[in-house]
Design a protein around this nucleic acid. Structure first.
Length: 109
DNA sequence: GACTTGACAATCC
DNA sequence: AGGATTGCCAAGT
């Protein structure tokens, strides 16, 4: 408990997101065990940037597949660019075929 | 130390 | 169908 277990779990899952795949805050929260703490997941992402973590936060979007947090990246189009580089198609800040690219985090960890 | 905010999501009118 | 409310957890004010 040096750091909140919540954050650690979030980071552990985000770090395991395969390249070219995406997941949602809610899915991560659910995998952790607190499906309703999706807000905190987002907060963890914001914190992860400040902590200089090497997490693919750009692979985490809201449940609609919308790049809600793109504004938090260094450059408003950084998130979209990163995702496109991984083979995803973004339209109007929303991931196309989101369902197809969706990656379900490991529930038991 | 209490209140507000925040990269969300599910539920209730 | 869509706006409003609640839940959850951490950090900032």
């Amino acid at each position: 408990m040096a750091n909140s277990d919540f954050f650690e779990k979030v980071y552990a899952i985000v770090a395991r997101i395969p390249e070219g795949k995406v997941t949602s805050y809610g899915a991560i929260a659910k995998a952790i065990g607190s499906a309703k703490s999706s807000r905190t997941v987002g907060y963890a992402m914001n914190a992860c940037v400040k902590l200089d973590r090497d997490l693919p936060a750009h692979r985490v979007v809201n449940r609609n597949g919308v790049l809600t947090g793109k504004h938090h990246f260094p450059g408003q189009d950084t998130m979209r660019k990163l995702l496109e580089e991984e083979g995803l198609n973004i339209e109007n800040d929303q991931i196309k075929n989101f369902k197809f690219y969706f990656w379900e985090p490991p529930i038991n960890q």
